[in-house]
Simulated scan of single mutants.
Amino acid sequence: MKGLYCRAAVNNAETKFVIQETSLPDVLGSHQVRVQVKACGLSPLDLKLLADIGVQRDLIPVGREVAGVVLQVGDKVSFFQPDDEVVGILPLDSSCSGLCDVIDIEENFLVQKPEKLSSVCVAAALRDGLCAYTALHTQAHMAAGHTLLVMDGASSFGLMCIQLACYHGVKVLTTSHSAQKHTFLEQLRPSVGVQDPLVVRVIPVYDTGSSDLLPQVLEETGGLGVDIVVDSGVRLLEEEKPQEMKLRPHKHDIISVLGVGGHWVTSHQDLQLDPPDCRLLHLKSASVSFLNPEVWTASSAQQGRYLHILKDVVEKMSTGVLRPQPEEAVPLYEATVAMETVQRQQRKKAVVQL
């Protein structure tokens, strides 16, 4: 049996992804489930995070969002039976690669997959759905009547945030990074119910950067600002290269569009706030929280809530409330090249069909 692994870079060498032979233990753990993998999602590997939590190996397993069919269960497993269709995210310290034909995983990292939901779709979008829930429900405490600004709404994560917020009665604004994405966002409609646009205003930033962000947000909110901002990275300096960084909002722009009591959820790991930024947040009684999608599998403190979120994500996908952008599945023999592209571009995703 073969799996995809990352050979960490040494002395500034380039990170390599390699196919390695692997095997499963003969005896299945009491609480483990043996799963035949049907599809596996590929997301960027955060090597720094793995080092921070003490996961240091010569070969690091790659591919953690999996969907498949249960082959065998341990003697103390209570949630699953053979032939059940399941989906889940492998823990950070997993020894298995999700691209193996068969993997062993603890039952408390899996949920049932609805029958009409394809394995490829759920493996590609599960992580983004989890991130959207974490940002909006767990951290920002979203409620009906709130106003939300989603940066880069046409990204897979941004799209999940928009759809989830609209489902809960939140007014959504977003930014677009190209003319094509702008048109796509303006044409977003719910799959059921009243066919009003999901987004009340799409703010283009591909020509002017974020210079038009503040006036357009204030115009749409009657000068009050938004209750929640969810970003996908920010600029810490006014002039940053490469070009795609200029499409990201400056940190001061985000603080400026926040209303009184507003909440900013950021994906930027190395955010630095200067005293004037902190002063402005203080004047607004606003807050900042960091979105770390790995926190659920890195800690078992809230395992029940984590499983509830996963179950709700897949149920909303199956009913059409959450409609992720379709990802074209790549075959297993292209997995190494696909993962290299994902790691290099950081925000791109891929899904492998086994």
Rank of each mutant, 00 (worst) to 15 (best):
K2A: 11
Y5N: 04
N11V: 00
K16P: 00
S23G: 13
S23A: 13
G29D: 10
A39D: 02
K48L: 05
D52N: 03
G54F: 02
R57M: 00
D58V: 01
L59T: 01
P61I: 05
V62R: 09
R64A: 12
G68P: 05
G68C: 00
L71F: 08
Q72M: 07
V77S: 02
Q81Y: 09
D84L: 02
S97Y: 02
C100Q: 15
I105K: 13
I105G: 08
L110E: 06
V111C: 02
Q112K: 15
Q112L: 14
K113A: 05
P114W: 12
L117N: 03
D128Q: 15
A132V: 06
A135P: 02
L136V: 07
H141F: 03
A144R: 12
A144P: 04
L148E: 08
L149Y: 14
L149P: 11
D152N: 12
G153S: 03
F157S: 13
I162V: 15
Y167M: 06
V172Y: 11
T175C: 09
H177E: 14
F184A: 08
E186W: 00
Q187F: 01
R189G: 03
V192Q: 15
L198T: 06
V200C: 11
R201T: 02
R201D: 13
R201I: 00
D207C: 08
D207M: 08
D207A: 02
T208A: 15
S210Y: 12
D212W: 07
Q216P: 07
V217W: 07
L224I: 10
L224R: 10
V230S: 05
G233T: 06
E240Q: 07
P242I: 11
E244L: 13
L247E: 03
L247S: 00
K251Q: 13
D253Y: 07
G259Y: 02
G262W: 09
D270E: 12
Q272M: 10
D274L: 15
L280E: 14
L280N: 05
A286L: 09
W296C: 00
Q302P: 00
L307E: 07
M317Y: 07
E328T: 05
A329N: 10
V330M: 08
V342Q: 08
Q343V: 04
Q343F: 08
Q346F: 10
Q346P: 00
R347N: 14
V352P: 00
